[in-house]
Design a protein around this nucleic acid. Structure first.
Lengths: 256, 256
DNA sequence: TGAATAGTGTCTATAAGACAATATCCC
DNA sequence: GGGATATTGTCTTATAGACACTATTCA
């Protein structure tokens, strides 16, 4: 969220902070939280973990970890996925850093949020090994890219109480996804290597939260040159089978 | 930059970090750096400060500060502007968090970068009070939104040596600006309250690093409904004077 | 009057929405 | 064959680029 710098502060506070010495004053803790997103049944879902301890005991939170003193932020985000869920090779991108003073009631924790995108089947397989996590459907109460906190709902449409400012982090991740889906190849992260145009459109619609024009979607994506037809067709579908495509630039013939 | 989570780490390291206790292990320092941007003479410029101390003595760096233990990130970014340069009310937005382990050779410093946008005249007035800062023109070696580090050049087109990873931070800020200029009202931050369409187009061109079609730009901006004509005209311009506009939705008549 | 830039009108090319027609699979 | 969805083609509409023309100011 953009803001405007505030009006003047007391000169004493300015002087104090200008003299701030990194080694003499207490440092905040720095954590990374990862919004692990997937698309299932036409809707975005996020991976949540039920907290066993205070604060926010029994609320649901994003998987995360503290950042080691000799570990980059990206590596810490990796570690959340490769450690907890054995999920190497997942698309990860830094989202936003949440730094309100009292966002964690215990102590000062600044959290660098990441988004991780992956296919539902792969995520489910990795989750099979674990106990507490749940895939919660996201309910977005705003249209377009307005932004703001969003809800996570359980299997029976019950709203799951979220820990800390994680409703804001989830909201920011959906906003980011919506803003980038039209020009960045994010949707393919939610799909297997080969997919039909309808599957791709379903992913776009789940992210955007609205239906799209089928003809225009087809034309636009095929014209982009980012899709390579595989020649393979769907089977056992009870109607004309769709062709499968693969993400990647079509090789242009050398002679033309 | 998106990345992919790496392959498995040694179980011992995972176990160690999983047990990481915020109170027992050293915390990184957290700083904010602000990319203060303005548009002058058809080009983006950023505020840089010559470092007087090691490391990177005599190199140029972004204005920044450490984050206080009871201070939000946004407040720390405010303080950089209201403290050092007496610039309250400036548009500030969080950009990205830079967390490579050795980005600062002294100790572990994670830096949350912000962008601050303001009008050239206002910035110059505030700078008059100070000594070391300079407004450096930005030279962007990539087109569109490819991203990557960029150069800052002095008055005689000499490249200024930048401290730390500040060339990357500057590059990220230009990339962000280019990505948002078409749908967010960023350009107006670089202009006085009343401006001509040509002045607005000049700002867009400076940000995008390329010329735009004049007719299409006019049509698009006027059709957006975001501009209110003031009725006032330029004076002393040696050619037909342009009308001044103001940013803000045109009030619609109640009867129509 | 001439130089210079603002602003308007028109034509064309491209992309999106709407809709109809045909294709192909399983039952 | 019938149901269902994929795929293709055409028409219409909105928007962007190109270009020509008119308008207004100061020197």
């Amino acid at each position: 969220m953009p803001h405007r710098s505030s009006h003047h502060r007391p000169a004493a506070e300015q002087a104090f902070l200008a003299e701030y010495d990194a080694s003499r004053y207490p440092h905040p803790s720095v954590a990374v939280d990862v919004v692990v997103l997937t698309v299932s049944e036409g809707a975005l879902h996020a991976l949540l973990i039920r907290r066993g301890d205070h604060p926010h005991k029994h609320r649901w939170s994003l998987p995360g970890t503290f950042v080691g003193i000799s570990e980059s932020l990206d590596d810490a985000a990796d570690r959340v996925l490769t450690g907890k869920a054995s999920l190497p090779g997942v698309f990860l991108e830094q989202l936003y850093t949440f730094g309100a003073v009292h966002r964690d009631p215990r102590t000062r924790v600044i959290s660098v949020a990441y988004i991780g995108l992956l296919e539902i089947d792969r995520l489910r397989r990795a989750l099979g090994e674990l106990e507490s996590p749940v895939l919660a459907r996201l309910r977005v109460p705003w249209a377009g890219e307005s932004g703001g906190p969003i809800e996570a709902v359980g299997p029976s449409d019950d709203s799951l109480p979220l820990a800390f400012d994680h409703a804001d982090i989830l909201g920011m991740s959906v906003k980011r996804l919506r803003g980038k889906i039209d020009y960045a190849p994010l949707a393919y992260e939610f799909l297997p290597a080969e997919f039909s145009l309808r599957m791709l459109q379903d992913v776009h619609e789940a992210i955007l939260g609205r239906t799209l024009n089928k003809d225009a979607f087809r034309r636009r994506l095929l014209a982009s040159g980012d899709l390579t037809p595989t020649g393979r067709l769907q089977t056992d579908v009870g109607h004309r089978p769709a062709e499968f495509y693969r993400y990647g630039h079509t090789r242009r013939s050398r002679s033309t």
